[in-house]
Write a protein that binds this DNA or RNA. Structure first.
Lengths: 146, 146
DNA sequence: AAGAGTATTGTGATCGTTTATCAATATACA
DNA sequence: TGTATATTGATAAACGATCACAATACTCTT
């Protein structure tokens, strides 16, 4: 599993400074990073780089299967390297906490969906909303999910 | 379980023509409907109604717990009456098919998330992406989820 | 029925994210 | 060196959604 830059190069793309910076930002981010976050990191040191280039590079990385998008319902999309394993998230509606979920937790669901619906689910990055431990207590009086 | 209009009235809101049209559109839609779809239905007969009013009414209905939002990852949000039961969707990435998923399918997952993470998940409308039966066959050669 | 106060709407601007267009620049290659 | 190609920067604009505020519609009291 080569790193993203080398795979890009192997695919015949030029390794421009802009592309290197976008790739570095995506790889440096421990979790998921948005285009705007990548852009502001780059702009801090290289103010002439354009956000179009960030989006273009992300599109390229996505098309080549090197990064993946995830929509956490924030009104913007986040990106992460595909080779860093799968990510599932439990997102607290109250405090915004994002809890990483173990992949194994979803294996039974995947099996059931295949058996019951003949559906091959892509559970590489699932987002489940709800309330975390603390907020569930705080919210007991107000809200109830069923 | 009264209908949305009567519950709105009971809550002390005025039953304006605009609100009635928005509510009617939401209730008429069998699945989920977007703000833009509601707006264009209304505009066809009442061109002077403004899209702000549509959004405002949807916000009101949402705040009063009469309709719920769901984000199917389309870049826009869809709305449905809460009293029509919970909806879960299996969305085919290839053909766009939206398969309704039985609610019971998710009960085990809900339990596991509570036990393992202390997370009270809100599984009222979950969207799972993947490939439907037909497209899974067609796609066997191209793509593989794991 | 008239007027005061409140609720609701229309208008138009604006926001944030993302995409499109196109000229300018940088690179590769003959 | 010159030419073709790849890539970028600048700018506008598409898109869904929100906002502020004046205009309108309604309710309620008298």
């Amino acid at each position: 599993m080569e790193d993203i830059l080398h795979r890009l190069e192997g695919l015949g793309y030029r390794l421009t400074p802009q592309r290197m910076m976008v790739v570095a930002a995506v790889e440096r981010a421990d979790g998921h990073i948005s285009a705007e976050e990548i852009y502001s990191q780059i702009r801090a040191r290289h103010p002439r780089v354009n956000i179009s280039t960030v989006y273009r590079t992300l599109d390229l990385l996505k098309a080549e299967g090197l990064v993946a998008e995830i929509d956490l319902g924030e009104g913007r999309v986040r990106y992460h390297p595909v080779d860093k394993g799968h990510h599932h998230h439990l997102i607290c509606r109250r405090c915004g906490a994002i809890i990483d979920m173990d992949e194994a937790t979803l294996i039974p669901l995947k099996g059931v969906l295949r058996e019951k619906y003949g559906f091959e689910s892509d559970l590489r990055h699932l987002a489940v909303f709800g309330h975390c431990l603390n907020c569930a207590k705080l919210n007991d009086a107000d809200v109830s999910f069923d």
